[in-house]
Write a protein that binds this DNA or RNA. Structure first.
Lengths: 360, 360
DNA sequence: TCTTAGCACTCTAGCAAGTCGAGTGCTAAA
DNA sequence: TTTAGCACTCGACTTGCTAGAGTGCTAAGA
């Protein structure tokens, strides 16, 4: 059960009176829990307000005229609009932390598994989903630009070798290559030494400009390297997901059509991929409210995303996807904590000298 | 639209008369399409049978007494029972192939992407899901036993090295290792040469028995190797999934409770993992009808699974998950084709000498 | 003996009418 | 400016009814 969000007076410059702000916040909070339109009487009774339902109704009407609330029908309670949510999120106390016990529990789970990036990524999605009781995603960190760092050629059988490519930032790719002629490990090592000297620090475009060599194997490997690097640049995110069931449990996604639109997010060509790319460019937690304006191709969901990793080297995105009425305060805290945790785990993995994510 | 399954007379030894067999098959087929109980009149009219509805009703009653059909209520049509499906699947002509044009289309998609196992695996799930209009899964191939084949130690920075482990069957793992003292590539190469000579062909248990060396780095690496290999043995399948939305569209999964049970299959600790392990031990396409007897922990779904890969080296599982009333004939053909295709793709990747999956 | 026409019976889906309750909006008084 | 009171609205739920699809049984026909 997430804690009740702070209901402090709005920060200066707000266009709402303190009471309107309180009422809007309470409606957002109540609707997040009940998923049903909030009536004036319910609100007063549930939160023990010192004003009468009629007063609340009057304020609600003003808020509706300002565009922060709507009605599903004449005699129903109020529901926040997208604008209402945007206002709420903007004026939220974003600095709240998760309860210390919860932070400990989460951290503990990461120290129980092997030190391996892929597993951390996967675990972060499922722990996040479990924590916020919504769907969560995490993308595998990768650098914004693929730059050659190291190649290793390993002879497996006389006619088969394993090529291991390491890129700046620590990403690795391996590939088996069939050879026309048999080669010894010594010969392959000489070749990889030469490649390492020539290619370190270059990107795919620069490598392409190199003059062809006399050695046919050299050329073959070079081709494969370029191909792999270009492919790496063009490759879609690898996304781990978890907790889809949580979201489908909530009433707004019981309709088939809604559920299908929601599920499409997790299928192969995901409609949120451009969003993730975009989100990676900025530090801090970002909240995206879908179903409207620039995000109308999304179903009615909200995304709470954060970049993580080492900004100059390789970064990934993690976050939560859930109904628009989610508990933003708690979710934002959870996402921020998880991003910081992953960043520091990665910093530990790749050496302490490199600080994790910048604390904005 | 899948083709109508062959309705030939049952193979000898069947406990049903030819007419009963036909009626059961038609009910299975009709119910697969309509998802609604099949009445006697509908059956006669839709399939142009030369017998009257009354006769069909009599036969239906016999089939019901034998346990192959049920009634949702007194005045409803008939629905196949699990036993009915099992009978139907067992007596199905399993040798049907996909239409040649479809096979070509599918093959084509695999030649359009880079030769990389992970991508093929992912693609196979989405193509399969698209083809049969149900959910599909594919696991990344891996050997049944992890056996050391090769190690490579690559110096990235003076105090950081990359360890690449290759196991029998071609699976690879890499890991960054922080070093207390600085090491040169030459020193690391000598170390990896020694390890390669000592460990090739051994499994984790045997490596554990080796006597400790004087060299501390040697011991450190050896520990990590054993740990990685043991971890590899214990690691869960990496599963790619696709087409979940197709299944959720069908009427049996519109109820929240059903949908959630179904989705649980695709979440982190999947209830079907033991099934996949089991299925990997046998060649050919296997059909599992869930929701009953040994599979009652599953929701009401059927699995059509096949192993693929190189039996002696490394194998994976691919298959389709859908409502029990799926089109078995078509689905089985699709799964078999996809398994064969993946097997031959892998054979091509790892060298022709090694034939793909045995044709059972 | 098998098949089939006829008929009574059963059960669900769907529709219409009616009731209940939560909630609004307005007005007038505090 | 706040609030009590009241008329009004609309959805959710209940009840009663009907049409339709389907079965099971019986008796006649092949």
């Amino acid at each position: 059960m997430p804690p009740i969000p702070r209901l402090s007076a709005p920060s200066s410059g707000s266009e709402l009176t303190p009471r309107q702000h309180t009422i809007l916040s309470l409606i957002v909070h109540e609707f997040a829990q009940s998923a049903e339109p909030v009536g004036s009487r319910t609100l007063v009774e549930t939160y023990g307000l010192d004003i009468s339902p009629a007063t609340v109704r009057n304020e609600m009407k003003v808020l509706e005229e300002l565009g922060y609330l709507t009605h599903p029908h004449t005699s129903a309670g109020r529901v926040p609009t997208h604008k209402g949510y945007r206002y709420f999120v903007q004026h939220l106390e974003q600095e709240a932390r998760l309860p210390a016990a919860l932070e400990r529990t989460i951290r503990h789970q990461f120290y129980q598994i092997q030190q391996e990036l892929d597993q951390w990524v996967q675990l972060s999605a499922s722990v996040l989903a479990q924590t916020v009781q919504n769907a969560a995603i995490t993308t595998v960190p990768r650098p914004s630009d693929t730059i050659f760092k190291h190649i290793e050629l390993i002879s497996l059988q006389p006619h088969t070798m394993l090529m291991v490519l390491v890129f700046q930032g620590g990403t690795m790719r391996q590939q088996l290559i069939a050879l026309e002629d048999p080669w010894t490990q010594a010969e392959l090592s000489r070749l990889s030494d030469r490649l390492n000297q020539m290619l370190t620090g270059l990107d795919a475009a620069r490598i392409r400009l190199l003059e062809p060599n006399i050695d046919p194997l050299f050329n073959q490997v070079l081709d494969i390297v370029v191909e792999t690097m270009e492919h790496e640049d063009a490759r879609g995110e690898q996304i781990y997901r978890a907790g889809i069931g949580h979201v489908l449990q909530s009433p707004e996604f019981t309709l088939q059509s809604q559920a299908r639109r929601f599920l499409a997010i997790f299928e192969q060509p995901s409609p949120i991929e451009p969003l993730l790319q975009e989100a990676r460019r900025f530090p801090g937690v970002q909240v995206i409210i879908g179903g409207e304006e620039p995000y109308d191709h999304l179903p009615d969901v909200s995304l709470v995303l954060s970049r993580y990793g080492r900004p100059s080297q390789s970064t990934g995105i993690l976050g939560v996807i859930g109904p628009i009425r989610m508990s933003y305060g708690f979710t934002i805290s959870a996402v921020r904590f998880m991003a910081d945790l992953m960043s520091s785990l990665m910093a530990g993995l790749y050496g302490e000298g490199d600080v994790g994510e910048d604390k904005s």
